[in-house]
Design a protein around this nucleic acid. Structure first.
Lengths: 211, 211
DNA sequence: TGGTGTGAACAACTTCACAGCG
DNA sequence: CGCTGTGAAGTTGTTCACACCA
């Protein structure tokens, strides 16, 4: 396996396949062909086969892919066969929603620490059980809890500080919800969830359509 | 201007430029060169120039771009020189956070209608002022209010229904937060905000790094 | 001089088309 | 016979390099 050569878009699609397969498995579907899976995920059938072929030969010619087996393999590839510990910074509206979100634990992601700088929030306990700590305690708690993923849900002007604190504290990857481009060390793993940008895309296409 | 030839990635980057320019404008910076702007947004300087050149000649050779003017032009291109009316479907944790989010109105996006199917929620009024309506009333309200963008924040298993209802009611674009690939008519404008997928990306890269 | 605008080279990703195998 | 796996072709997006201009 030559990992370096795998398109990042392939990884994103694997995640989609995994979801669809989960549903198929749940519905007792045993086998699926690339055409069907492709349709469910809105991609080209050849793309599905090529994506999977990067990691091995999971299919059976003339038949398709065994749902259970393929799901297992994809989860293994994505690293979803373990639980991931996350820390949240910024417990406003969005942060609260994330902590309360049921899908995360289902997928193996868990918030084990929650931070904020607002003295009015620090010390309180969330409905989901976590206590809110001050950012100053981040370093200790993150190494104690062996947190690997940091999630930023602060206002934009706090996000860079939050990122620095998380990185200093030793997290290995960041998921950023703040609408700002965060500067991280070369090679550091970061993903942005940027719904303002997505909305702007919609606005653009709506505007163009009329022309 | 040959709009059809513009890469969708360009539109996404315009959104980033717009944000950075907003900040620069706010800090009284008058002029910026492609290098600086590129660095702030984490892209290649040539990319910045090429992106902008799709839409006109906004720069001055030997000088750079005038911040105020460029910001204005980009907003015009993206369609951000008007207010956009949105309708939300699904007022759970995430939906509530979205409605309460301050950035939307700042950017010109406004939730003018909120829907759910839970009888326990319908009829209540949100802190932000909107009344929660049953999905059955969607068609009437969306046309009355001239809503153009639908936002889906339901659980995955409700999302396709929500989409159908929104489309039937006449929205022209959808922003989907549910972790599922929604089927829409050919050419319909839809964007997904998919943080599960982003997390899976992190998990993958964290897993690979060790190998 | 310094930074834009842009054709041309390059790189990345996607789709086609078909051989090969169960 | 049907569907996978995959080289080759096609498409799309990015970067280079430099002419050109304030």
């Amino acid at each position: 396996m030559k990992f370096s050569k795998i398109p990042s878009a392939t990884i994103t699609r694997l995640s989609l396949y995994s979801r669809s397969l989960e549903e198929l498995y749940h519905n007792d579907v045993k086998v699926i062909a690339s055409d069907k899976l492709a349709q469910k995920c809105g991609v080209n059938p050849a793309q599905v086969r090529k994506d999977l072929a990067y990691f091995g030969e999971f299919g059976v010619r003339g038949v398709g892919y065994f749902v259970k087996e393929l799901l297992f393999e994809i989860k293994k590839i994505l690293g979803l066969n373990k639980r991931w510990k996350m820390a949240l910074v910024g417990i406003g509206n969005l942060g609260s929603a994330l902590v309360a979100h049921e899908n995360f634990p289902k997928q193996g992601y868990e918030f084990v620490a929650v931070f904020d700088i607002d003295p009015a929030k620090v010390g309180h306990r969330l409905p989901s059980g976590q206590k809110i700590y001050h950012v100053d305690e981040m370093s200790r708690l993150i190494s104690e809890q062996e947190v690997e993923i940091g999630v930023i849900a602060t206002p934009a002007n706090q996000a860079q500080n939050a990122a620095r604190a998380l990185i200093d504290a030793g997290v290995k990857a960041i998921l950023n919800f703040a609408p700002i481009q965060i500067q991280v060390p070369e090679g550091f793993i970061i993903e942005n969830v940027d719904f303002t940008v997505k909305l702007d895309n919609l606005a653009y296409h709506l505007t163009m359509e009329v022309v």
